[in-house]
Amino acid sequence: MRKFGLLATAVAVALVSAVSFAANASAQPTARFFDPVSKQWLSFGPGARHHGKSPVQREVVDYTGPYGPNTIIVDTGERRLYYVMDNGKALKYGVGVGREGFQWAGTHRVTRKAEWPGWTPPPAMRKRQPGLPAHMEGGPNNPLGARALYIGNTYYRIHGSNEPWTIGTAVSSGCIRMTNDDVTDLYERVNVGTKVVVRR
């Protein structure tokens, strides 16, 4: 009887562990993104919620502001990016913005575009976080994600992210984050020289 009791206990523990593992795995799915350059589905994660989608969906909205077509407007307070189009319309995207102490504003131009960009953390960031690499090659695990638009001569970029759940929050060191789906869409619409207006 004692052996049977020990065996039953072991089986029960194993079952609880298996259920717990399965629950955690299903609660934190891997995000997936279709890259139009490689024509492949790529996985990001683990732990990427919303299945790689932004909690803020891209939409076309009316626009009556002062900026002309082919202008990017980042409203950091609203945590939205607007790409102004013709006919009084704009594309509205959700973005992640700089956290407290890293907000900024200004008007610049897109000076460079990159697909699957490499990441070289600036010296000030490496000083704050000594464990960061000197450089990271581009790819699905790179914090800059699938695309990057470089803003003026600043360290800041509008870039993708392998953490889509951070969209709509203030968590970055000043860069503007988008989902990989959204930044790829924006990347195809803009050229080097496009005006970028960042408002607080």
Rank of each mutant, 00 (worst) to 15 (best):
M1L: 03
K3Y: 07
K3I: 11
F4T: 11
G5E: 02
G5P: 03
G5C: 06
L6D: 08
L6P: 10
L7R: 05
A8H: 06
A8K: 08
T9F: 13
V13K: 13
S17M: 14
S20K: 14
A23E: 02
N24P: 10
S26V: 10
S26I: 12
S26T: 15
A27D: 06
Q28H: 09
P29T: 12
P29H: 06
T30Q: 06
R32S: 13
F34D: 00
D35N: 09
V37N: 11
S38W: 01
K39W: 15
K39H: 14
Q40T: 06
W41H: 04
L42I: 11
G45I: 06
G45T: 05
P46D: 04
A48R: 09
A48H: 09
H50V: 01
H51Q: 13
G52S: 03
K53M: 08
S54E: 03
V56M: 10
V56Y: 13
V56A: 02
V60L: 08
V61E: 06
Y63T: 14
Y63Q: 12
Y63F: 15
T64I: 09
G65F: 05
Y67N: 03
G68R: 10
P69D: 04
I72P: 01
D75I: 08
T76I: 11
G77T: 13
G77A: 11
R79Y: 09
R80P: 07
R80A: 02
L81R: 04
L81V: 02
V84S: 04
M85G: 03
M85S: 05
D86L: 15
G88N: 02
K89I: 07
K89P: 14
A90F: 12
K92A: 10
Y93L: 05
Y93H: 08
V95R: 01
V97D: 02
G98I: 13
G101D: 00
F102Q: 07
F102C: 06
Q103W: 12
H108P: 04
R109D: 04
R109E: 06
V110F: 10
T111K: 06
T111Q: 01
R112T: 09
A114S: 11
E115Q: 15
E115P: 12
W116G: 01
P117C: 04
G118S: 05
P121H: 03
P121Y: 03
P122H: 00
A124V: 12
A124N: 10
M125P: 05
R128K: 11
R128V: 06
Q129K: 14
P130C: 07
P130L: 04
G131W: 12
P133Y: 04
H135A: 09
E137T: 15
E137Y: 14
G138V: 14
P143I: 10
G145P: 04
A148K: 03
L149S: 08
I151A: 01
I151S: 01
G152T: 02
G152N: 02
N153E: 01
N153G: 09
R157W: 14
E163F: 07
P164N: 04
W165D: 05
T169N: 05
T169S: 07
V171H: 07
S172P: 03
S173A: 13
S173G: 15
S173C: 08
C175W: 10
R177T: 07
D181K: 15
D182Q: 11
T184H: 05
T184A: 14
T184R: 00
T184Y: 11
T184W: 08
T184D: 04
E188K: 14
V190Q: 03
N191F: 11
G193W: 15
V197Q: 02
V197S: 01
V197D: 00
V198E: 01
V198Y: 05
R199I: 13
R200K: 08
